[in-house]
Write a protein that binds this DNA or RNA. Structure first.
Lengths: 253, 253
DNA sequence: CGGCCTGTTGATGCTTATCAATTCCTGTGG
DNA sequence: CCACAGGAATTGATAAGCATCAACAGGCCG
């Protein structure tokens, strides 16, 4: 189902018998430069292809179940997945969200600390864990790149952590919107909420009602629009960023 | 100052000319089994020794400054360091705390995302970044171990993040105490607060006053003692853990 | 011994959670 | 295509929890 071998559409023409050109699917990959494979030389990339597959994960589908042995790792090409975990009280909690060029899974096995579920239709570059590990052993630069990405993620998690510790409701809501819109949020463009209000509340450490009130407030201030229940438009990115960063000292609360 | 070459106290006796026995300092290392070097074979460990040094970081001393190029990585053998960062408003914020067997620094260079400062006298196993990188290239298992640790840290950061998002003041304070006491908190043992009330407040996302009130409350409930300003004793570890986990439904708030 | 800094305790107000009612999508079936 | 049901989101009223402001106590240093 929706599995497409990466090699399937390779258009490299081996005129001289050598095949050291970039597989076309990678050239077309929107996140190539930012993902872990970005730093690989052509021949290594070609090799990596042979163990990976493209996969489309439909909205709501689960890639990995919490507690399962980790059998695969993946790059997110487009879309979004959530990392979630069940709590002692039985409810599900969102631990994080991973968007394009993000890496998910643990190469070294062990039970998964969280489930991975698609928030919208999501394209992935999936690799079985064992061959991926072997690939890392042969190509240490991949391990290096992955390590770098893991440390990046760690830094980002620590900063979000800080935000949760100190931010007000308006700051959290604004940060959430910017997160959903991606780092390069475009004014006037229609974005989709990848998660429900309830899940947004979980992630930001607020309640549904507070999220709703803050969105209304931002709408009334003219900073965003809410054309439908599941979409939003940013009109004033600067204002939103200002609120996300330091609302405590601005006029809008 | 306080620099001690790791090889200095190696007691391995090369009777037969071979030196493939574990360096004694590593045998004596309290965190050997939990640190990244734990999985290394003897010969690799011996090699790693030759690029590392022990270093004692005195309370308050800074190992790495935020923004500086990362020139070293280290294992924490004993003590505690904080990761901190300056904010836009000029104040310092604590991003996290690293205790024994923790790994700090980024092997792959780039400017440091946070300063690293000792919270108490701390013993470190320090390695210059470049030789450490070369070592990783030769010994991929080190990269694998480090990657695993990084993912562990990431999971822990995500869970603390979740805690901050949803926890009440009493939950946060209890979690903080358990964190300070280590995973195996012993009832009746005297522990030291590694950071000031203000820094605890920063870390937990509370104010000094609230931290103080919660500590008093825990003391009055008989769960802890506060024999001095800078120390605490846990009398009822179970109660503390219960509060940290699910205070919202207990009687104590 | 006295100043000073850190921590504790007290009183009050703001922010956000909670409880409750209503509206508005969305998707389903006729 | 429209009507309807069901759930999700919004809005309102109230209260709890924590921050803030303020005063005080207790070590630690000179």
């Amino acid at each position: 189902m929706d599995l497409e071998p990466l090699l399937g559409s390779q258009t490299c023409q081996s005129l001289s018998g050598t095949t050291n050109c970039t597989p076309s699917v990678c050239n077309e990959c929107a996140v190539r430069e930012h993902a872990v494979c970005g730093s690989l030389p052509v021949d290594a990339l070609t090799e990596l292809h042979q163990i990976g597959r493209h996969r489309l994960l439909r909205k709501g589908q689960t890639l990995v179940w919490e507690g399962d042995e980790t059998l695969l790792v993946a790059n997110v090409m487009s879309g979004m997945v959530k990392l979630s975990s069940g709590t002692s009280t039985g409810t599900e909690q969102i631990l994080g969200i991973v968007g394009p060029s993000g890496f998910i899974g643990r190469p070294n096995g062990g039970p998964a600390a969280h489930s991975i579920v698609a928030l919208m239709d999501t394209k992935l570059c999936v690799f079985p864990a064992s061959p991926f590990r072997r690939f890392m052993e042969v190509h240490p630069e991949m391990g290096v790149a992955l390590l770098d990405k893991a440390f990046d993620d760690l830094d980002r998690a620590r900063r979000w952590q800080l935000m949760l510790a100190r931010a007000s409701a308006s700051e959290r809501t604004a940060s959430l919107l910017l997160e959903f819109a991606g780092n390069r949020a475009i004014e006037g463009k229609a974005y989709v909420f990848p998660i429900s209000r309830g899940q947004m509340a979980d992630l930001a450490g607020l309640t549904i009602e507070t999220i709703s009130r803050q969105l209304t407030r931002l709408k009334k201030a003219g900073i965003i629009s809410l054309p439908s229940r599941s979409g939003f438009i940013i009109h004033d990115r600067g204002a939103l960023a200002a609120i996300a960063g330091e609302a405590r000292h601005s006029g809008l609360h």
